[in-house]
Amino acid sequence: MQIIKNDCAFVVEVDVFFADDKSPNYGQSSGQRLENNRARERVAVDSRKHNPADFVLWKAAKPGDPSWESPWGPGRPGWHIECSAMSAHYLDFQI
């Protein structure tokens, strides 16, 4: 996957995370700034992330969940997959 080759995403076990610090225009579409994010306010920070703002592009399947095959194993798109599409546009790279 090109986004991983470009070092804008990373794999941990079966999950694939978007590296938010690779996006100089993070939050441009929403008007939010990365430095204004408050980690651990809504959910616990996943210690596997490089940065608390990193988000899941591909999430490993849990038993009973709908899932699809991928190069990393069965899973599903992360809830913020639309954010990665917007970031890919601003970073001008191929997913």
Score class of each variant (00 low, 15 high):
27 G>K: 02
42 R>F: 11
42 R>T: 10
30 S>G: 04
21 D>M: 09
15 D>K: 00
43 V>W: 13
43 V>F: 15
30 S>M: 06
52 P>V: 02
55 F>M: 04
50 H>D: 15
44 A>W: 06
58 W>Q: 04
60 A>R: 05
37 N>K: 11
25 N>S: 09
41 E>G: 14
19 A>Y: 09
32 Q>R: 14
47 S>Y: 10
19 A>D: 11
19 A>K: 09
42 R>C: 08
21 D>H: 11
42 R>L: 08
32 Q>T: 13
37 N>P: 08
17 F>A: 01
48 R>W: 06
47 S>F: 11
59 K>Y: 09
38 R>K: 15
26 Y>S: 07
30 S>A: 04
52 P>G: 07
60 A>Q: 06
50 H>K: 15
54 D>A: 03
41 E>R: 14
58 W>D: 07
23 S>G: 14
16 V>T: 02
47 S>D: 09
49 K>R: 06
35 E>L: 11
32 Q>I: 11
28 Q>H: 15
55 F>R: 07
45 V>C: 10
27 G>A: 04
49 K>Y: 08
39 A>K: 10
28 Q>C: 13
51 N>W: 03
40 R>D: 08
33 R>S: 12
55 F>E: 03
33 R>N: 12
59 K>A: 00
17 F>Y: 00
54 D>L: 01
49 K>W: 00
45 V>I: 14
39 A>C: 12
15 D>C: 00
59 K>L: 03
15 D>N: 07
34 L>H: 06
48 R>Q: 05
24 P>K: 06
30 S>V: 00
48 R>Y: 02
19 A>I: 12
60 A>P: 06
59 K>H: 03
51 N>Q: 12
48 R>K: 05
36 N>Y: 07
47 S>G: 12
43 V>D: 11
17 F>S: 01
